Amino acid sequence: MRLAASVTFGGSDLDRAAAERKDAAGLARLLAEGGQVVALWRGKPLVAGDPAGGDCALVMLPSGDPVLKPASEAPIFLGRIEGQAVFAQDISSWTPPEPVDEAQIGAFLDPTVQHHPGAPEGTAFRELRAIMTTLSARDAELAATARALGNWHLSHGFCAKCGTASVMTEGGWQRLCPDCGAHHFPRTDPVVIMLITQGERVLLGRSPGWPEGMYSLLAGFVEPGETIEAAVRREVFEETAVRVGRVDYLANQPWPFPASLMIGCRGEAISDEITIDPVEIEAARWVTRSELLSVFAGQHPEIRPARRGAIAHFLLEHWLADRLD
């Protein structure tokens, strides 16, 4: 797909400098000699700017900044931008001065904002989903990488082989068990997301807990021993009972919520009767091209579009414009 590089989180000029991860002393020097740090609080990056204005930017803090003091582990080495070393550090143990609404933070889209009194003026910790389209390609890749790695460290603190507390190593790209010596690596979960069409219609569904009226493409995890094409056919049939024939790959998107790779595919439906699995989805429906135009224009009486910045929105937008090839 010619325009796939424009997918949010789709990549930029970040040099991941993987060869430098093994040099712990070298990374410490880089950090001390001008390394910049992206701060995360419960997966939310510290950013400057107002998303309502469409322009946010990651805040880069110097090593040793007081904001980073609550960090419980060493910074994660993200790579280099124009030669400059960039790290990320989690400060989730910090308690914001404003009350924390746990229900909001755990929601589909966290609208809350946390201000650190020691951070630069005009900055705040904001939910990445809410600001992803306001970030530059470079900042989006850094934020997605930092969030995915940070979440992995928070949820994988113990050795899966023997249960001993593990330690961060390789610049944050591995965890090592000091007891049995097992190495653990960040996981990425492959997910198929499907543009299922039949003529001038596209199949949309919605999950419980989504904002009212929001519909998107069907999606599901690839299972062990399964091809991408088989996963597309299985997931669509399980969720809607619609059978799919030909499947083609279109594009992909890193999706750090918490750590997936969304594999965008197009599938041709060979049946059209829908019977949903209520355990999997809340509703599904066929939507014509003209209907989808009204959805994107915000004029459909029942359907709201997939969130801008998500690969579902990207694929639907390019299907409407006949730019999938």
Rank of each mutant, 00 (worst) to 15 (best):
G163L: 12
T169A: 11
A165P: 13
H184G: 11
P190T: 15
Q174P: 03
G171K: 02
T188Y: 01
S166H: 02
G171R: 04
H183L: 15
D179I: 06
G163C: 13
L176T: 00
C162M: 07
G172P: 08
P190V: 12
R175S: 13
C177E: 08
V191Q: 06
S166D: 12
T169E: 08
M168N: 05
V191A: 06
M168E: 14
G172R: 05
C177D: 05
G163I: 09
L176N: 01
G163V: 13
G171Q: 01
P190H: 09
H184A: 03
A182E: 02
A182H: 10
V191H: 13
R187G: 05
V192Y: 00
G171A: 04
M168D: 12
Q174N: 03
G163E: 07
Q174K: 13
L176F: 05
V191L: 10
F185L: 15
G163F: 15
A165I: 09
G171N: 03
P186T: 09
A165L: 14
V191I: 15
R175Y: 00
V191F: 14
D189M: 10
G163Y: 15
D179G: 14
H184C: 10
C180L: 14
T164N: 06
W173H: 03
E170D: 11
V191E: 11
H183Y: 10
D189K: 07
T188E: 10
H184M: 10
F185D: 12
P190L: 14
S166P: 00
S166Y: 00
E170S: 07
G172C: 05
C177K: 07
S166W: 02
H184W: 00
R175A: 09
T188C: 06
H183S: 11
W173D: 05
V191P: 03
C180M: 05
E170Y: 05
M168Q: 15
F185Y: 08
M168R: 08
V191K: 01
V167C: 04
G181H: 00
S166E: 06
Q174A: 14
H183V: 10
H183T: 10
H183C: 10
C180W: 08
P190W: 07
P178H: 06
P178S: 04
D189W: 12
P186N: 13
W173C: 03
C162A: 10
W173K: 02
P178G: 03
D179S: 15
P178V: 12
R187W: 08
T188P: 00
H183R: 10
P190N: 12
W173T: 01
H184R: 05
V192A: 02
G163N: 13
P190E: 15
R187V: 15
Q174G: 00
G171W: 00
D189P: 00
V167Y: 05
D179C: 03
M168A: 14
H183F: 09
F185G: 01
P190F: 09
G163S: 05
L176W: 00
R187H: 13
G171M: 01
E170V: 03
P186D: 14
S166Q: 02
